[in-house]
Design a protein around this nucleic acid. Structure first.
Lengths: 195, 195
DNA sequence: GTCTATATCGCGATAGAC
DNA sequence: GTCTATCGCGATATAGAC
């Protein structure tokens, strides 16, 4: 029930300023660093002035809140996709830890990396948001594999992959070969198999 | 061949200012954040004035270099301990990823966390130092388990543990129960076993 | 809604006394 | 070798025009 069908999708230029600002903030956090994500830099990348930015987000704290809310919404969607994934939650979790394709999951990834950067900067709210995300993921994994320690092991593996691919862009190509990813998945499923 | 034997060990008050400054820098980075580790804060914690700090380290860059050099030395020691560990490199690696006891390894941990924070802040040298450390670890693991993908899997697991315990002090107790750690080690060794 | 000032503050770094 | 004092810059945030 879209109020105005023609406005449910936006070309880049039409995308609301509020969204463009959050995009710019997340991108600067992810591609550069927390220090680089100044109000000036965010405003410039979003194509507004600093004053324009501060009309939509009255302070930098409000900007952070906007990003956290966006993350929470993406987490809810992702958990749902994880639950209903054709090859099961474990396969979905490991695969999406290493790389993604769809536009929604790319925005999700950007949000995670951005919030992780804020968490490193000692932002308590950001840490809580990440902890809540991990809690939700772990719940689905436990449901899928039964054994809590195995579920935790798989999640630690996913965290390690994420830490290397997304948070340390040194990118020595952690699992660059597709065949390596398949072998890793095989190892993980062997872990999950009851004996 | 110590020049003055009585000065090879220092009580906290006697510990050279240079070392105290590096300690303070690493602690502030680890316990708080990159932003909190200002020259003023480092000087205050080390018990010197800002001018005193800048006598030993002429710039903040020099301070970072000092920390990186300290990390490199610790890595060399750790790799040696890993190679000669009684229960093998894999056991050593996983156990020391989760928690440590000896004073040297505590300084090592603090250095890793501190440098990881700098790497998140887009410091190229810090990223290179972490990449070199991982490269060394991976070499020992590959030597121990034979299979490169298994070795990489174990390292990703260790990275995940580290990321949760050290970098996200949300500390929901990733593997709080000692019995859980033993089960995790059992799972890892099952991974490493050839079949 | 978005802009251009501008106020205020904290940081890194320098100068020079002791 | 360590201190105090100060400069210059960049960041957040405010005020007010359009």
């Amino acid at each position: 029930m879209p109020a105005s069908p023609s406005s449910t999708a936006h070309s880049p230029a039409q995308r609301p300023a509020r969204d463009r600002i959050l995009d710019a903030f997340a991108e600067l956090l992810g591609e550069q660093s927390e220090r680089a994500a100044t109000l000036d830099a965010v405003a410039a990348r979003a194509g507004v002035s600093k004053g324009g930015l501060l009309y939509h987000f009255a302070s930098k704290d409000a900007l952070v809140d906007g990003l956290l809310e966006r993350l929470r919404a993406s987490v809810a969607d992702d958990v749902e996709r994880m639950r209903t994934a054709p090859d099961g939650p474990v396969d979905y979790f490991i695969r999406t830890s290493i790389a993604t394709a769809t536009p929604e999951s790319q925005e999700f990834e950007r949000s995670i990396v951005a919030v992780a950067r804020l968490a490193q900067g000692a932002d308590e709210r950001a840490r809580d948001a990440l902890a809540a995300m991990q809690h939700d993921w772990l719940g689905v994994l436990e449901e899928a594999v039964g054994d809590p320690v195995v579920a935790r092991t798989i999640m630690l593996l996913g965290d390690g992959i994420y830490y290397n691919t997304a948070l340390l862009p040194s990118g020595s190509g952690v699992l660059s070969e597709p065949a390596d990813l398949e072998r890793l998945l095989e190892l993980v499923h062997r872990l999950a198999a009851r004996d």
